[in-house]
Design a protein around this nucleic acid. Structure first.
Lengths: 151, 151
DNA sequence: AAATAATAGTTGTTTGGTTAACTATTGTTT
DNA sequence: AAACAATAGTTAACCAAACAACTATTATTT
């Protein structure tokens, strides 16, 4: 290992939260637009939860996407406005909204995932399975560290 | 390699641009606040450019931080408002603003970097140098891929 | 049963990213 | 020199994140 290979904190920060996530989100958004998909990356992340399990509460979506409740309120507002999901009251707990996919929300899954697949395939071209798994483990470690340290 | 270890595109996306950058930025912002540092992560990234080379144009800052010009205009607006930097006209090219650190902007460098160091040290606790370098190379590859594919 | 705490969601404010449309200035072409 | 193109920056619109303060409802304590 060469000394020149040691990264500063700033470099590490940029690595973990800097330009690549920014570029990847921009890249995906462009592809959504080119594909005629009127979704943001954040809206997609909410729909992805519902494609796995329809009828979640907003709190559950917030937890699953690591966002806070106000962010989810507004994301759902926009998804409702665009006709991808609908809000329904919980039968017994009147505090809770359950979010259900509309037909439109269900129908776009395949075309969205096609674009996501293409985005990831192009972005990670040349990346080995080993590298991917090392990144996964490393990010899980970082995730756990932050969850442990933040009060 | 086990089949269960193969990641879907969605998992890869979440890995590369999902929760870890989100959490890390949140973690840093909390620490800035606890440390009495009135900066956002984005404002810091601009100051970091100026700490390396004072008196950059806004376009140069935009390129260095992978942001577009409107983002930089507003970031600089806020940094000026908070007294960290000042705008000055370029001597010969009247289109260009040069951004200079104020004393306040210069003086906070050390305390900011202390917080950044602590944030990264805690977040990456247990991460090996090898993992870090693999991530660096992988992200460079992804960066180059996106730059190549996006028109 | 009444008071309190916890949970689910909303609203307002500030900051930032993206795109498009715009002004001002400088550089290039003819 | 005039027309055109390129560059630097701003403004406005929309979407989203973070935080604080808020309402409504449900659960727990006493």
């Amino acid at each position: 290992m060469k000394t020149a290979d040691v990264l500063t904190s700033e470099n590490k920060y940029d690595l973990l939260a800097g330009r690549v996530p920014l570029l990847l989100n921009r890249f995906l958004l462009q592809k959504f637009k080119l594909g005629g998909i009127g979704l943001t990356r954040e809206q997609w992340s909410v729909l992805a939860i519902l494609w796995k399990e329809d009828g979640c509460s907003q709190q559950k979506i917030a937890d699953a996407t690591n966002r806070d409740k106000p962010s989810i309120t507004r994301l759902i507002d926009n998804l409702v406005k665009e006709g991808f999901v609908k809000r329904e009251h919980h039968k017994t707990d009147r505090r809770t909204n359950l979010i259900y996919l509309t037909e439109k929300g269900k129908n776009i899954e395949q075309s969205v995932m096609n674009v996501v697949n293409e985005t990831i395939d192009q972005s990670t071209e040349g990346l080995t399975q080993e590298q991917t798994l090392i990144i996964r483990d490393a990010f899980q470690l970082i995730y756990d560290n932050i969850k442990r340290y933040e009060k």
